[in-house]
Design a protein around this nucleic acid. Structure first.
Length: 782
DNA sequence: AGTGTGCCGCTTTTT
DNA sequence: GCGGCACACT
């Protein structure tokens, strides 16, 4: 009859049932690669075909990119003009939009600023200093995390102060003033007309809780609500959905408990359980057929995840081919691992005629990317890195955006401090400090303090400079509503002097910075030319642009020029993606699973789910690798293979040969690749590494590092500079004399603990008895 | 006021 | 091994 039947017929039974579900609560548990996005897409298209107004659909995704892609796909099914009207985006961006519309009700300026993590931490740091507390005890990062998780659990500053349990916790941990910092932080945010990321959700909750008319309005606006990646929502997000869905209960959540990997930032797996309680009449569909991966990969992934206790029962299966076994590679060093992976990509690309873009290298931490970048560069394989410093985190971009934010909201303290003297205007720290202190005393913002600058005793010349700056910002601000984002943005870049400052820097880095600014401006141009379907006559002003970009993540950056490249990213950012060939690297104890996760079963299970996510990204082939030694904190560390390798059912694996060195070919090995992987990094001295250094049988015990290493170190300090001629950990034994860089001569009294965490108790006549971790202590033999 | 230098701490993961 | 930051120098 119509297209509906058409596209629904492309789905399997469970998919179709879920997609055709119209009214009432619905939960879809979707295994990895089971066509979850397809179901969401088709369901929305179906709703629209059933006559639901796209403006009444709220669809929350994990990234903005996911939202864009889904809109595109829906557009193909029901037409772009319909698809564009759906409210679709991340929690943060959707509710930032709503908060902006309703800002007066909570006494915020319409153009409130959104502080990113750096802004927030800077502010917290300032507050800690102003309160006269020690930032060694109150580490800004930790304080931020504590405040963040409080907000995500809807514990406000007052609740925090009044909660006996929390207070007791802070007492015990020696941080009794945490609550006061929290209170001061919120106050400062408010004075600056700013919200942090968590506020966007927290204040949405307050808004819906405290203003029944607003709640009513949005309950009826959003008659159909869909939430993707439901397993990664936190309590604050859960409650927003619960409030909004209360009127119609047309709420559909899609998720996979096995892929919950954000508990560390408050994601709560219990939201899935709560769903059953909140909507007892809910419909449940499980998508269990995997369309993405080979049998080997699916079954190997199942064998891993079955080790977790906490999980919803389901059995993921596939009709796809068996595929090839998962190869496990043991590398000698982190650099070796880089070359192994790069070479493997190089040869598969030739042998199987694959594109570079079909490969992904997935690691646990961003810091691991280096060896892969280096090796890929050497082999001339194009690659792109996700994460690390995103575009919007770059200094020059943050500077320009600070001007924009300040123009929209002059009370924005972090932005003001950033640019009041950049480019140089002769307003130094002394002046700024006077203003900051004055503002704090009077409980006003810095901008307001500038208006009363005479009160803090600035000299005439300084006053003049500061006033010039104020006039500059004001001259921008008066045009906020009349000019579009690009026109005003360009003017600000030019008249602030920033463009000139960067242009005059002729170093390559300077040129790159200038180009980045141009790129930002191009983005603004595009943004300004866009039309908002709900307000077609409105021009897109600078304030709109800021909301848009404040919440972009680097997963959202996909540019045409990035096609045809190998993807390097953390497993977290690989969520939702898929690649024919996947390398999961750095599979070592302490690294993956991370050492931070070893303390509790819950944390370890999250790591395991993370590994599950990594493995299920692969379509055709997955390769695992680990290194025996790795540089961390500039020190050589001995590593043990990750327990996750052992946990995979062995029938799916191709394990490395246990008895011989990787340089000795014992199986179908690409000689050229293997040779390459050794050649570039080792100087001749290192290549004479004694054979037993590589001949350790599995499992690799880091207790006694290969005897060859110390010699190598002595022979070529250039390649391993940090080690110098310090003693290797195993040389430190009870009774021997050692020399420490700082404490001088001493005698080893005791040695205890398991490698690599061997701890020695050493008596230094000059400094007394010390306990030192051998992997860190720089000891020489006396 | 602006520039340079040495030291410290650091690595989970991100909206 | 690097970057951020405090302090000291010009």
């Amino acid at each position: 009859m119509n297209a509906t039947t058409d596209f629904l017929s492309e789905l399997n039974e469970a998919q179709r049932a879920a997609a055709a579900h119209v009214n009432g609560p619905l939960m879809v548990i979707a295994g990895a690669g089971s066509g979850k996005t397809r179901v969401l897409t088709y369901r929305i298209a179906h709703l629209i075909q059933q006559g639901v107004d796209p403006f009444q659909i709220l669809s929350l995704t994990f990234t903005n990119k996911a939202a864009r892609e889904m809109k595109l796909r829906i557009g193909k099914l029901v037409g772009d003009h319909e698809a564009r009207n759906i409210w679709m985006g991340t929690f943060h961006s959707i509710f930032a939009r709503i908060l902006r519309i309703e800002s007066e009700r909570i006494n915020y300026p319409r153009t409130f600023s959104i502080y990113d993590t750096t802004d927030s931490k800077n502010l917290i740091k300032d507050i800690i200093k102003e309160m006269g507390l020690d930032d060694k005890i109150y580490k800004p990062g930790l304080v931020y995390n504590r405040i963040s998780s409080s907000k995500n659990n809807l514990i406000g500053a007052a609740d925090y102060m009044n909660d006996g349990e929390i207070q007791a916790e802070d007492q015990t941990s020696g941080k009794p003033h945490m609550g006061e910092i929290y209170t001061a932080y919120n106050l400062r945010l408010f004075k600056a007309g700013a919200m942090d990321f968590d506020d966007l959700l927290f204040k949405t909750n307050e808004l819906l809780r405290d203003f029944p008319d607003i709640l009513h309005k949005y309950q009826h606006k959003f008659q159909y609500i869909l939430v993707d990646e439901y397993q990664d929502t936190n309590f604050s997000q859960y409650l927003i959905i619960k409030q909004l869905a209360a009127a119609y209960e047309n709420v559909c959540v899609v998720g996979d408990d096995a892929q919950s990997i954000y508990a560390f930032r408050g994601a709560n797996i219990h939201n899935i359980l709560n769903f059953r309680k909140d909507y007892p009449e809910y419909a449940l569909y499980k998508l269990e057929q995997n369309y993405r991966s080979t049998k080997t990969i699916v079954e190997a992934a199942n064998s891993i995840i079955s080790k977790n206790k906490d999980q919803i029962k389901k059995s993921v299966w596939t009709a796809n081919d068996q595929g090839s076994p998962i190869k496990v590679h043991r590398a000698l060093t982190d650099n070796d691992e880089g070359y192994f992976v790069a070479n493997q990509i190089f040869s598969i690309r030739n042998e199987e005629n694959a594109e570079a873009s079909e490969f992904a290298i997935l690691y646990r931490t961003n810091a691991q990317s280096r060896s892969f970048e280096e090796a890929l560069r050497k082999l001339n394989i194009p690659y792109k890195i996700f994460g690390g410093l995103s575009f919007y985190q770059r200094k020059e971009i943050k500077d320009l955006i600070a001007y924009y934010r300040l123009t929209c909201n002059p009370n924005d303290e972090e932005s003001l401090k950033r640019v009041i003297n950049y480019p140089r205007r002769g307003i130094g720290d002394t002046t700024i400090n006077k203003l900051v202190v004055g503002a704090a005393e009077r409980n006003i913002s810095i901008w307001e303090m500038i208006g009363r600058a005479h009160e803090v005793g600035l000299s005439g010349a300084t006053m003049h400079k500061v006033n010039e700056f104020v006039l500059l910002i004001r001259s921008f601000a008066v045009q906020l509503d009349s000019k579009n984002a690009y026109d005003l943005g360009h003017q600000i870049a030019a008249e602030s002097g920033l463009l000139k400052e960067l242009y005059s820097d002729k170093t390559p880095e300077g040129a790159a910075r200038y180009e980045n600014i141009q790129e930002l401006l191009n983005g603004m141009k595009e943004f300004s030319d866009r039309e908002d379907p709900e307000f077609p006559d409105r021009i897109n002003v600078l304030g709109d642009f800021l909301i848009d970009i404040a919440l972009l993540t680097d997963a959202d950056n996909d540019k045409e020029e990035e096609e045809g490249k190998v993807s390097l990213m953390t497993i977290h950012s690989a969520k939702g993606l898929e690649f024919p060939y996947v390398n999961i690297v750095g599979l070592e104890e302490q690294l993956f699973p991370s050492q931070m996760s070893m303390n509790s079963r819950e944390d370890l299970e999250e790591e395991r789910r993370l590994f599950y996510v990594a493995l299920t990204r692969a379509e055709k082939r997955a390769t695992l690798s680990y290194a025996l030694t790795r540089y961390r904190w500039g020190q050589l560390q001995y590593c043990e293979p990750s327990r996750f390798i052992e946990e995979i059912d062995e029938q799916y694996l191709e394990l490395p040969p246990a008895e011989r060195a990787p340089s000795t070919p014992t199986r179908t090995i690409d000689f050229r690749a293997e040779r390459e992987s050794f050649k570039p990094r080792y100087n001749p001295a290192e290549n004479q590494r004694p054979a037993q250094a590589q001949a350790k049988p599995e499992p690799i015990t880091p207790v006694a590092p290969p005897a060859g290493f110390k010699k190598v170190n002595a022979a070529s300090t250039a390649s391993i500079p940090m080690h110098g001629d310090y003693a290797a950990p195993e040389q430190i034994q009870v009774g021997i004399d050692v020399v420490h860089d700082k404490f001088g001569k001493g005698k080893v009294v005791a040695v205890e603990g398991q490698a690599p965490d061997v701890k020695a108790t050493i008596f230094f006549p000059s400094a007394g008895q010390k306990q030192l971790l051998l992997k860190f202590a720089k000891l020489k033999l006396a």
